[in-house]
Simulated assay, not measured.
Amino acid sequence: MRPEQMLPAEKQALDNLLKIAQGDTGQSRRVADFLLAWWNAGQCGSYDLTTAWGLDDDIMEDACVVFRLASRAASYPDTLGYGEHFEAVVRAWRPELVKE
């Protein structure tokens, strides 16, 4: 999938989640875990669905939209132009994986 094929709602939901993942709250950690499972589940950890029990309803709606996007895109977020954004989430939540 090319970035221009993303639906507006998908782009908005992904942007919302990336912004939340940059925070330092429990919601931020849960969102980061979800996003990083798409980025690289092998290195960043898979996503336990029960983690979603701790998400606010609006955030959960965005996560559902992004899950559909990830499934529909059949590719990683860097192919959609979000590589730098996801790298920032890795730096924030998985600093041990950052290669210097």
Rank of each mutant, 00 (worst) to 15 (best):
A13E: 07
G26D: 13
R72I: 10
C44I: 10
N40W: 01
A92G: 03
R2Q: 10
L17P: 09
G45H: 05
G26I: 07
D57C: 10
A88R: 01
Y47N: 06
L97S: 01
L18D: 04
G83A: 13
K19R: 10
R94K: 11
R2E: 09
A32Q: 04
A70P: 00
A88K: 00
S46F: 15
K19C: 08
Y76H: 02
V31M: 02
L18H: 05
Y76F: 05
D62V: 02
D56F: 08
R2Y: 07
E10V: 08
A52Q: 13
T51G: 01
D78H: 03
D78M: 06
C44R: 13
L55D: 11
W93S: 01
F86I: 03
I20G: 06
E61Y: 12
T50H: 11
C44Y: 07
V66Y: 05
P3H: 14
E84K: 14
W39K: 07
A13V: 09
M1K: 03
L18K: 00
D58R: 12
E87D: 15
E100A: 15
A37L: 12
W39Y: 07
G45R: 05
A92S: 05
M60N: 14
R94Q: 06
A41M: 11
E96C: 10
E96S: 15
V65A: 11
E84S: 11
D58Q: 14
E61F: 13
T50S: 14
V98T: 13
E84A: 15
A73K: 00
A37E: 10
D33G: 00
A9P: 08
E61L: 12
N16M: 07
M60A: 14
D48L: 08
S28C: 07
Q12N: 12
D62R: 03
Q43H: 13
D15W: 10
F67I: 10
L97D: 01
R72A: 07
G23E: 15
D33K: 01
G26Y: 03
V90M: 06
E10G: 04
S28K: 04
I59P: 02
G26M: 07
P95A: 12
P3C: 07
D24W: 09
L97N: 03
D78I: 08
L80G: 07
E4P: 02
R30V: 14
A37G: 14
L14I: 02
F34P: 00
E96V: 08
Y82R: 12
G54V: 09
W53A: 10
L69K: 00
G83P: 15
S46I: 14
E61S: 11
S28Q: 05
R29A: 15
S28I: 13
E87R: 09
M6K: 00
V31C: 02
Q5M: 13
E10I: 11
T50N: 11
D48A: 12
H85I: 06
R29C: 08
L80P: 11
E87L: 13
G26W: 01
L80A: 07
G54M: 11
C64P: 03
A37W: 10
D24S: 08
